[in-house]
Simulated assay, not measured.
Amino acid sequence: MELLEWKKSYDTGIEEIDNQHRQLLEFLNELGKETASRDNRKTAEILEGLSEYTVSHFAFEEALMEEAGYPYSGPHKHVHKTLIQRVTAFKEKLAAGEAISEELHSFLRRWLINHIQRDDKAYVASVSAHFKLEDEAPAEEKEENHGWIARMTRKFFG
């Protein structure tokens, strides 16, 4: 299966979010590598790691949107919730012995790229404005805002 490579078009401009998205892409590449082996046990391990990381990423992203006062955080959270429900359904199929690797990989690949490029990029202006992440922000504001992001990163990712 073709591995996904990070493209500049996936960048949101928020370094921590982009780093998390890169990690999600790596999980997808692991899943893609396992698709050929059809090892449900290994698929389950990767899916569990992907699920746990995704839940943390979503919580981080939602906290970021709420802190920034993003007006569409509710619908964005709903999109996250829907994905979690879909992944849970895939887990149930896998637990029942179904071979889901190819379908799961294809679905998650499309979902992640579309979500980053459409849904996530939609909140960037609000978040950037709130945190003044632009280059012209005074150094003390950057430190304060990056401090919040760093604290939240530690909270969700250890």
Rank of each mutant, 00 (worst) to 15 (best):
K93T: 03
K42M: 10
L64C: 01
D119M: 05
E52K: 13
H21I: 01
T153L: 00
V127N: 09
K155Y: 15
H80A: 12
I149Q: 08
L50V: 00
N40D: 08
A122P: 00
I149Y: 01
L24R: 05
K142E: 06
L133D: 00
E67V: 04
W148S: 07
H21G: 00
T43K: 09
T12N: 06
E26G: 06
L83V: 00
G49R: 13
A137F: 05
E102G: 07
D11P: 06
E61Y: 08
H130K: 14
H21C: 01
F131C: 08
A139E: 15
D119K: 11
E16V: 07
E136V: 06
H57E: 12
K132G: 01
E134W: 12
D11L: 08
Y72Q: 13
K155F: 15
A95R: 14
E143C: 03
M1P: 05
H130R: 06
E5G: 07
N114V: 07
A125D: 13
R118G: 11
W6F: 12
R22Q: 10
A89C: 03
F156S: 05
K142S: 08
S101T: 03
E98M: 10
K93Q: 12
A59F: 04
G13T: 05
E2I: 12
Q23G: 08
W6T: 04
E141H: 08
E67H: 02
T82H: 00
H21S: 00
F27L: 10
L31Y: 05
R154Y: 11
R110D: 15
L28N: 01
F60G: 06
N40T: 08
D18L: 06
P71L: 04
A150P: 01
A95K: 15
F157S: 09
A36L: 08
F90V: 02
P138I: 12
Y10N: 05
H57N: 07
A137I: 14
R154A: 15
E30R: 12
E52L: 11
G158A: 15
I116S: 03
E134L: 11
S106H: 09
N29P: 10
S128G: 11
K7S: 03
A129I: 09
P138G: 01
I17L: 13
A89Q: 06
Y123N: 06
I116N: 02
Y123T: 09
G147D: 14
E92I: 05
Q23E: 10
G147N: 10
S73I: 02
